[in-house]
Amino acid sequence: MAIRLQSFNFPKFFVRHQNFEGELMELNSPGFADDFAWEEEFLRKDGDGFSIVRFRSKNFPDKFLRHSDFRIVLTADDGSQLFRNDSSFRRRNGLSGDPEQGWRSYESVNFPGHFIRHRNFHVFVDDKAPKLAADATFKRVDL
Rank of each mutant, 00 (worst) to 15 (best):
residue 6 Q to C: 00
residue 91 R to N: 06
residue 20 F to N: 10
residue 95 L to H: 02
residue 96 S to N: 08
residue 35 D to K: 11
residue 128 K to V: 11
residue 52 I to P: 00
residue 66 R to I: 00
residue 78 D to I: 00
residue 47 G to Q: 15
residue 95 L to V: 02
residue 113 G to C: 05
residue 61 P to L: 08
residue 29 S to W: 14
residue 100 E to C: 01
residue 28 N to D: 14
residue 9 N to L: 03
residue 129 A to E: 15
residue 126 D to F: 07
residue 2 A to I: 13
residue 8 F to R: 08
residue 96 S to Q: 02
residue 34 D to L: 15
residue 100 E to D: 13
residue 128 K to Y: 08
residue 15 V to E: 05
residue 126 D to G: 15
residue 39 E to L: 01
residue 124 F to E: 08
residue 73 V to W: 07
residue 124 F to W: 07
residue 112 P to V: 02
residue 87 S to N: 09
residue 47 G to P: 06
residue 87 S to L: 00
residue 26 E to P: 02
residue 27 L to F: 14
residue 6 Q to D: 07
residue 73 V to A: 03
residue 138 F to D: 04
residue 30 P to R: 11
residue 141 V to M: 14
residue 76 A to H: 01
residue 66 R to K: 07
residue 12 K to T: 13
residue 138 F to I: 09
residue 48 D to T: 06
residue 60 F to T: 00
residue 60 F to R: 09
residue 82 L to Q: 11
residue 38 W to R: 10
residue 14 F to R: 10
residue 101 Q to E: 13
residue 122 H to F: 10
residue 44 R to K: 13
residue 17 H to C: 05
residue 68 S to N: 13
residue 32 F to D: 15
residue 119 R to V: 01
residue 25 M to R: 12
residue 61 P to K: 07
residue 68 S to L: 04
residue 30 P to M: 11
residue 33 A to S: 12
residue 31 G to C: 02
residue 116 I to R: 09
residue 16 R to F: 15
residue 56 R to A: 04
residue 142 D to I: 09
residue 69 D to W: 04
residue 2 A to C: 10
residue 39 E to F: 15
residue 113 G to K: 11
residue 54 R to K: 11
residue 112 P to L: 01
residue 86 D to P: 03
residue 109 V to A: 04
residue 110 N to P: 12
residue 37 A to D: 14
residue 141 V to R: 00
residue 9 N to M: 07
residue 42 F to Q: 05
residue 65 L to S: 08
residue 106 Y to S: 07
residue 140 R to A: 11
residue 132 L to T: 14
residue 143 L to V: 14
residue 2 A to Y: 14
residue 142 D to S: 08
residue 53 V to C: 03
residue 42 F to Y: 12
residue 103 W to S: 12
residue 70 F to M: 11
residue 8 F to T: 10
residue 19 N to A: 11
residue 20 F to A: 09
residue 30 P to S: 11
residue 65 L to G: 03
residue 116 I to C: 01
residue 66 R to G: 01
residue 26 E to I: 12
residue 17 H to A: 09
residue 79 G to F: 07
residue 9 N to S: 15
residue 25 M to S: 15
residue 53 V to Y: 01
residue 80 S to E: 00
residue 139 K to F: 05
residue 12 K to Q: 10
residue 117 R to M: 13
residue 51 S to W: 01
residue 37 A to K: 15
residue 50 F to P: 00
residue 27 L to V: 03
residue 141 V to L: 08
residue 79 G to L: 12
residue 3 I to N: 02
residue 65 L to K: 03
residue 17 H to I: 05
residue 92 R to F: 05
residue 33 A to R: 12
residue 119 R to D: 10
residue 55 F to N: 01
residue 49 G to Q: 11
residue 112 P to A: 06
residue 15 V to L: 13
residue 120 N to I: 09
residue 59 N to F: 05
residue 40 E to T: 08
residue 98 D to M: 05
residue 71 R to K: 12
residue 1 M to H: 12
residue 117 R to H: 04
residue 109 V to H: 06
